[in-house]
């Protein structure tokens, strides 16, 4: 028990600290690196909750893809953070007011939140008990049985997105030397190497 509590405080402390560093670091590349740290610690928190699938997905998708994409964008765009921060103090009051209103709305909504009674049974029945199955198992059982149709169509949508990205951006450039493995293998010494008899003391 105590180990779990310690782990929780460790993960959450690093998570919050990393999140603060994301918005306060001077170097945008450092910000992205802190973001990756934050993702890892959030994944740790998910593991503590027993949501191991979500933790893995967070690492694979967010760290493996999204954060790397951010890193590319940050490096390519060469953002000047000082310029971005110029009006910080000036906009602070307005931002704070908006944040307070949002917080108040959130509290009001959570305070008055009731579930439609007819919905309750279906909401409870949707997930199998976590003691008997792992997350991945449970998700898989739903995804590949009840929702197989939607799963497959979603796959087709991604295929269309991929074709679209290639159609709209890919171009064949002239003068690019590509490695052609078949040509390399097909090469024979007789075709490329020429043996010449060099007379002694004369040069070619």
């Amino acid at each position: 028990m105590i180990v779990q509590a310690l782990a929780f405080y460790l993960f959450s402390f690093i998570l919050v600290a990393a999140a603060v560093m994301v918005i306060s670091a001077r170097n945008p590349v450092h910000s992205v690196l802190f973001l990756i740290l934050a993702f890892f610690n959030a994944a740790g928190l998910f593991v503590l909750c027993g949501a191991e699938f979500l933790a893995m997905v967070l690492v694979v998708v967010y760290v493996g893809a999204v954060a790397v994409l951010f890193l590319f964008v940050v490096m390519m765009l060469d953002i000047n953070l000082l310029q971005l921060r110029e009006g910080f103090i000036r906009y602070l009051p307005v931002g704070a007011v908006v944040a307070l209103i949002l917080l108040a709305e959130l509290l009001v909504m959570l305070g008055g939140w009731v579930m439609v009674p007819e919905m309750a049974p279906s909401a409870i029945a949707a997930t199998p008990a976590p003691e008997t199955l792992t997350n991945t198992h449970a998700l898989g059982q739903l995804l590949y049985t009840h929702y197989i149709y939607l799963f497959q169509v979603a796959g087709l949508i991604l295929l269309v997105a991929m074709i679209g990205a290639i159609v709209l951006t890919h171009r064949r450039r002239e003068g690019v030397r590509r490695q052609k493995v078949s040509d390399q293998i097909r090469r024979r010494a007789e075709e490329t190497v020429e043996l010449r008899k060099v007379p002694t003391g004369k040069g070619i």
């Binding site: 149709y149 939607l150 169509v153 979603a154 949508i157 269309v160 997105a161 074709i163 679209g164 159609v167």
Partner: peptide, 23 residues
């Protein structure tokens, strides 16, 4: 409603691309 949405999205996404086909 969900299968409606995925069908619609599959159609629309392909249409966005062919609209910009002459890039």
């Amino acid at each position: 409603l969900i299968s409606l949405y995925v069908g619609l999205e599959l159609q629309s996404l392909a249409l966005y691309v062919v609209a910009a086909f002459q890039r």
